[in-house]
Design a protein around this nucleic acid. Structure first.
Length: 275
DNA sequence: CTCCAGGGTTTGC
DNA sequence: GCAAACCATGGA
């Protein structure tokens, strides 16, 4: 099926933006995304794309996933009268904040602490490969990310084999909480931001940064601003402690432009720093 | 070899 | 309350 997207939309930037860790590639510049039990193959550019799904799945699954109900060009084409922000949104034009599966985001960002992006991808992919259910993806073989009920039955030693290190008990405990109902990730979709944040903070291995990442990337709470080492550097470099947080309900989106800019600027002529 | 990675918990003051 | 030590592992 063909779809038109009349807004900022750059698949390569989205892949390299450090929010999704299981993006795959097919022939001729095709990208593969996974969420829940859905797999999407997509290729194209200039606003015109070929997608592997039908109309209903595009509307119900992938439109919210890519946050296509929001005009990011309203952000990137505006003058914010801030040198750092204006440079960041220009550099990152095409990015979007993805709305992904809350449980997968919780595990992924627990794993993310003190790991670089390739190492995070490797661990998450190994967990899906070993414990996830196989999905149909037009010939390719990919697995869904395993639900909490499944990971709760995996031993800590086995989890450790996915390069989780000291994070293995955190993931195990999160799986037990989420599968027993002690932590109701589904019900939290209707909670306010602060309640959601406080509930996520109850999980061992989850601090402010990881909780905010789950709020932003798993629940679409675009007011939440995760502060990692790159955002901290950007705050220091710009001399503005409110660099992202002053943008209210789109602070989290600003954070994504700033993260991408701070991490990647300066490395475009020296070859790839990411991979 | 050393240094660092989308941090968090524990410990000591 | 805050700062420092400590945590496993892989990549550069």
């Amino acid at each position: 099926m063909k779809v038109s997207i009349g807004d900022d939309f750059d698949l390569l930037k989205i892949e390299k933006s450090g929010q999704c860790f299981r993006v795959g590639h097919g022939a001729e510049g095709e990208f593969r995304f996974i969420t829940g039990r859905n797999v999407l193959c997509i290729k194209g550019g200039g606003g015109e794309y070929e997608v592997s799904c039908g109309e209903e799945e595009w509307r119900d699954v992938w439109t919210p996933y890519f946050d296509l109900g929001r005009r990011y060009s309203d952000i990137t084409e505006r003058n914010w009268n801030d040198e750092y922000i204006d440079a960041a949104v220009a550099y990152g034009k095409g990015l979007r904040v993805l709305r992904q599966d809350p449980w997968e985001m919780l595990v992924t960002f627990i794993i993310s602490q003190r790991k670089n992006i390739p190492a995070i991808s490797k661990s998450v992919e190994m967990i899906a490969g070993r414990y996830g259910e196989p999905l149909e993806a037009g010939g390719q073989s990919v697995n869904a990310f395993p639900p909490a009920e499944v990971l709760a039955r995996v031993s800590e030693e086995e989890l450790r084999e996915c390069s989780l290190g000291y994070r293995a008990p955190y993931v195990k405990s999160a799986a037990e909480m989420a599968s027993s109902g002690e932590l109701d990730l589904k019900a939290l979709e209707s909670a306010d931001d602060e309640t959601l944040f406080e509930e996520l903070m109850r999980v061992r291995g989850v601090g402010k940064k990881v909780a905010n990442c789950v709020c932003l990337f798993g629940y679409g709470r675009t007011a939440r601003v995760p502060v990692d080492v790159w955002i901290a550097r950007a705050i220091e470099e710009s001399g503005n402690s409110e660099l992202c947080s002053r943008y209210g309900d789109i602070g989290g989106i600003m954070q994504q432009y700033v993260f991408f800019y701070a991490k990647n600027k300066g490395s475009e002529q020296k070859g790839k720093q990411n991979e």
